[in-house]
Design a protein around this nucleic acid. Structure first.
Lengths: 218, 218
DNA sequence: TTATCATTCTATTATTCGATAGAATGATTG
DNA sequence: CAATCATTCTATCGAATAATAGAATGATAA
C-alpha cells in the first residue's frame, strides 16, 4: 500500500461519510447551528442510538465535532467549507442526474424557469436588500432564527404564520427563506401568503449557504 | 419515504461514489482528460473488469460519461465542478483529519511551511507568469501534456528529465507542476533539478485545478 | 451517594458492497 | 462472415455497513 493509496483511502473516508441519506440529513440540520443528539435524531427521524452512531461516523471523517454542555453533547460542523461541499454535491447531482430533476419538480411543482414565481437568486436578493426594496422573511423555528439569520430578517415560524401577519408589509415585495435549497418551509409560506394577496417569492438558497459565502449575518 | 428523503438518498449516491479509494484514483486520472478503460485500470492498478465496475458506479452517480471511439470507450468527467468537488474534499480532509497531515509529511518531507522550498501558490504563479519571471515546467507524460497544459509550459516527462535539460534555463526560476496536489512527479523533478543547480519549486496544485478555475490552458 | 438523564458502546443480524473469474456483447479488421 | 479486441455483464464469495436492542458510561441533581 503506497502513501498515495493511503491518502486516497483517507479521502474516501470523508466521501463515504457523505454517502448515506441519514448522515446528509444530520449535516443539513447541523448547518443551521449546533444541536444535541436528541434534536438531531428527531429532525432526521432516527432513534437516538442510530443517530449517535452516524454522528460517530461523521466525527471520524472530520466533518463534525462535539462539546459538552451540561449533560448534553452539542454537535457542530467542524468547518464552514462543509456547507460548500454539500452545495457542490447538490449542484453536481442536479446537473447530472435526471432523478434529481424529477424529485425537484415534485417538491416545487410550479417553479418552472419560465414562471414569475421562480426563486430569487442570491444576487437578486443582495440587490433588493441594498436598494431597500424587499422585506426578508425567515420562516424557520425561532430557535434556529436566534442562532443566526439574514440581516434585517423578520422571523415568523411557519406554524404561526397566520397569527403574525401584522408584521408583514402589504405593499412591498417579500422574500422568504428557510434552511436550504430543498427546505419546503419558505415554499409553503410563499404559497399561503400569495393566497392572502402578498407579493412573495422564495429565496433559492437558505441561511447556511448565505453564511458560508461570508455574507453578513445577525 | 418522503420526497425529502428520496432527494437525500439521491445525493448520498453521489457521496457514496466518492467513498472508495479506487474510484477517487479513477476520478483523479480522468481529471487529466478522457481515457479508455484499460488506461484507467492501469493507472489505478486495477484489473480491467474491476475498473469497469467502478466506472459504472461513477456513471450511475452522474460523475462520468463515456463515448465510443472505434472499439474503445472513452470515459470523461461529466462536469468541471467535479474537480472542484474533489478539491474541497481534500481541503476538508486536510484541515480536519490528523491522518492527512501525517501522510502528507511523508509524501513531501521537506516542505514544512517555514522552508524556502514550500510550494508555489496559484497567485504566486500567476504573478510570476504575468511578470515573465518564471519558466513553467510540465513533468507529466507527453500524452497528458498534449491533452492540455498551462500556457507556455515546457513539457519534460519525468523519465526523460536528464536527457532534456538543454530546454531549461539556468538563471530563471522554474515552477514545476504535474497532475494535482498529491502527485509526486513535480516534487521528484524539483528535487533532482535542485541537485543539478537549478532554481526550482513545485506548484501546489496541478493542471486539473488550474483548468477548473477557468484559467487559460493550451 | 444515589438516581436520573443524555449519550455511547457492544453485540447481533440482515443487507449491501467489492473483487474475481468467466461468459456475453458489440464494434472493427481481415 | 469469422476472428479479434475492448468492455460489460453475471454469479459467487467474503468483507464491510446499517439498524436494533440492551448494557455501560459519565455528568448532573437530589
Amino acid at each position: 500500500m503506497t502513501v498515495q493509496q493511503s491518502l486516497q483511502d483517507t479521502l474516501a473516508q470523508v466521501g463515504r461519510a457523505l454517502g448515506h441519506g441519514h448522515r446528509l440529513a444530520l449535516l443539513e440540520r447541523l448547518a443551521q447551528g449546533e444541536a444535541p443528539v436528541e434534536t438531531l435524531a428527531s429532525t432526521a427521524s432516527l432513534t437516538v442510538g442510530n443517530a449517535s452512531q452516524h454522528l460517530q461516523h461523521l466525527r471520524r471523517a472530520g466533518l463534525v465535532t462535539a462539546r459538552r454542555s451540561g449533560k448534553q453533547r452539542l454537535y457542530r460542523l467542524t468547518d464552514e467549507r462543509i456547507i460548500r461541499l454539500l452545495g457542490l454535491l447538490r449542484q453536481v447531482a442536479e446537473t447530472n442526474l435526471a432523478e434529481m430533476e424529477r424529485l425537484l419538480s415534485q417538491l416545487f411543482p410550479e417553479e418552472d424557469p419560465q414562471s414569475a414565481l421562480k426563486p430569487v437568486t442570491r444576487d437578486e436578493l443582495l440587490a433588493g436588500l441594498s436598494g431597500g426594496e424587499v422585506t426578508v422573511l425567515d420562516v424557520r423555528p425561532e430557535k434556529e432564527y436566534l442562532a443566526g439569520h439574514l440581516p434585517e430578517a423578520i422571523n415568523i415560524p411557519l406554524d404561526r404564520l397566520e397569527g403574525m401577519l401584522g408584521r408583514l408589509p402589504r405593499d412591498r415585495e417579500i422574500v422568504a427563506y428557510c434552511r436550504g435549497p430543498y427546505c419546503v418551509l419558505s415554499h409553503e409560506a410563499a404559497q399561503r401568503l400569495r393566497q392572502l394577496g402578498y407579493r412573495v417569492r422564495r429565496f433559492e438558497e437558505g441561511y447556511p449557504e448565505w453564511k458560508a459565502t461570508g455574507l453578513p449575518v445577525a
